[in-house]
Simulated assay, not measured.
Amino acid sequence: MAFFDVQNLFRHAKDAFGHHHPNFDPLKLHARVCELKGWRPTLVRYYTGIPSAVEDPKWHGYWSNRILALKRAGVHVTTRPLRYRHLPPSKAGDTPQNIKIAQEKGIDLRLALDLVALARKRNFDVAVIYSQDQDLAEVVEEILEIGKEQERRIVLASAFPAGPRATSGRGIDRTEWIKITQNEYDACLDPRDFRPRGA
């Protein structure tokens, strides 16, 4: 089963491969990773924050269209609204600057809770987490304990972009690390344009 921490994967793919929006097809990418490991892919779960229509209408429209297409393809999608924080105005030269920062809240927690719940229900033998977020290391410990209680082996893997420009070469602690090359990633792009008309 796949668990995509979309914004984390996108940020690392941007650094490693130069992609400027989350243009990967999660079904294709998960199938490719499973093919490399000899695993049978099952459900794909996709977790992301989305911007508000007021703060960022272009990207809100992009995500609305993208999420609809993913759900139609059978992907289980979980979203949370982005929260916005404004830094106080400062001066760069003589020009006042008002900087707005978007933050994702609650996605990591939801992903972790779903991992635990689905492990307890024996819904997977292998969980591939598409993320390098070390905050998820604590849930890895919990799932390994669940495996001991259920007297079965649960495999946890962390899949992430790798290459000479990658900003981190580490997966989530205590998982099996799967390094995705640029050729593998680029073979799994979604060619569709989800931007709203006129954007």
Rank of each mutant, 00 (worst) to 15 (best):
V6H: 04
V6G: 07
Q7G: 05
F10P: 00
F10A: 08
K14Y: 05
D15M: 06
D15Y: 08
G18E: 10
G18A: 08
D25G: 02
P26F: 07
P26Y: 09
L27F: 03
H30S: 02
R32L: 08
V33W: 00
C34M: 03
E35G: 01
E35K: 02
E35Y: 00
L36S: 01
L36A: 09
K37F: 00
K37P: 00
G38C: 01
W39N: 00
P41K: 05
V44M: 03
R45H: 10
R45L: 04
T48Q: 10
P51H: 14
S52V: 12
P57W: 10
K58T: 09
W59V: 02
H60E: 02
H60A: 12
G61H: 01
S64I: 03
N65H: 13
R66W: 10
I67W: 05
L68I: 10
A69P: 02
A69F: 12
L70Q: 04
K71W: 01
G74E: 06
G74N: 06
V75K: 08
V77K: 03
V77S: 04
T79Y: 03
P81I: 09
R83Y: 08
R83V: 11
R85K: 14
P88A: 13
P89G: 07
S90C: 06
K91C: 11
K91W: 11
D94C: 05
D94H: 13
Q97Y: 03
N98W: 04
I99K: 13
I99S: 04
I101M: 08
I101V: 12
I101Q: 09
A102Q: 08
Q103W: 00
E104I: 04
K105D: 03
A112F: 02
D114A: 12
V116C: 05
A119P: 08
A119M: 10
R120Y: 08
R120S: 02
R120C: 05
R122Y: 06
D125C: 05
D125Y: 04
A127L: 05
V128K: 03
I129N: 05
Q132F: 01
L136G: 04
L136T: 04
E141P: 00
E142F: 01
I143W: 03
I146W: 11
G147E: 07
K148Q: 09
K148H: 09
E149L: 10
E149H: 08
Q150D: 06
R152Y: 02
R152S: 03
R153K: 14
V155S: 14
S158E: 09
A162P: 06
P164V: 14
P164S: 15
P164C: 14
A166P: 06
S168D: 14
G169L: 14
R170M: 15
I172V: 15
I172G: 11
I172Q: 10
R174Q: 13
T175A: 13
W177G: 11
W177I: 11
T181P: 13
Q182A: 15
Y185V: 06
D186G: 11
A187K: 11
A187C: 12
A187R: 13
C188Y: 11
L189S: 11
L189Q: 13
P191K: 03
P191A: 14
D193K: 12
